[in-house]
């Protein structure tokens, strides 16, 4: 599983807004790539970002194995036809070119996850999206991240309780209804508590926003992002 790992690489020290921008710009340029040299270029950037973040390629492949499996099915299933000649090469190649663009995007986003704690993404959201939507989304992301382990424990205890009463022998229909109802009910109870707790701490529309500061390090990465966007736009407009 890929998660944030504290460190002091160059990528760790970039501002999260910079890293988000370059990710989106890279994805944009990746979707316009189609020739072999362009694809190779994407892989160079993708692998380079992993290198800079000091993240092993193997760890990324393992974390995304299901995605990679579905991608690998692309050319295989594209090649199959019902009827002679049963296998055709051309659609497989089209598919291969298409899926090859996704892998470098996975690499770049893995580097982001590895180097960026959730609270920095939250800060980036609050500092980028203005006003109340930004505040709600930022705080919402932080709270959701906080409550995932709590609800995971709820799921475990509800499942064990059902099992302890021989609920396992019931039909799928009954089991899933009971489990879902109990979980939603617990989640709603927790939301009541959370609402009170937020208010007790003066939850406000205009808090002090988390610290974020661009530095000189961010400049080349922003230039790179702009270059990606320019390349993509030039390609899209057919210039």
């Amino acid at each position: 599983m890929l998660t944030y790992t504290p460190g002091s690489t160059l990528v760790h020290r970039l501002d999260p807004r910079t890293k988000l921008a370059v990710q989106f710009a890279f994805a944009l340029v990746a979707f316009t790539a189609s020739t072999a040299p362009q694809l190779i270029g994407l892989f160079v950037v993708g692998l380079g970002s992993l290198r800079l973040a000091q993240l092993a390629v193997r760890a990324v492949l393992r974390a995304y194995w299901v995605v990679l499996l579905i991608l690998a099915l692309g050319p295989v299933l594209a090649a199959v036809t019902l009827g002679p000649p049963w296998l055709r090469l051309d659609p497989a190649l089209v598919s291969l070119r298409s899926i090859a663009r996704i892998v470098p995007i996975l690499f770049v986003s893995a580097a982001y996850i590895h180097t960026t704690p959730i609270r920095e993404t939250r800060a980036a959201i609050q500092r980028t999206i203005p006003g109340r939507p930004g505040q709600l989304l930022g705080v919402g992301v932080a709270l959701t991240f906080r409550y995932v382990p709590v609800l995971r424990a709820d799921l475990r205890s509800v499942r064990d309780a059902i099992r302890a009463r021989n609920g396992d022998t019931r039909s799928l229909w009954e089991r899933s209804q009971r489990l879902t109802v109990l979980l939603v009910d617990r989640a709603l109870r927790r939301s009541d508590q959370l609402a009170i707790a937020l208010q007790a701490r003066c939850f406000a529309w205009n808090p002090t926003l988390p610290r974020l500061q661009f530095s000189r390090r961010d400049v080349p990465v922003w230039l790179l992002s702009i270059a990606f966007v320019v390349v993509a736009v030039v390609d899209l407009l057919g210039l």
């Binding site: 998660t3 994805a27 995605v67 899926i99 996704i102 893995a110 959730i118 989304l137 992301v141």
Partner: peptide, 26 residues
Amino acid sequence: LYVLVGLAGAPVYSNAAAGLGYVFGP
């Protein structure tokens, strides 16, 4: 929020995946 938390890197998508790459994936 669920999608955003995954974009931010929490392993919340299917098979504990996360990240923009997953969202742009198949």
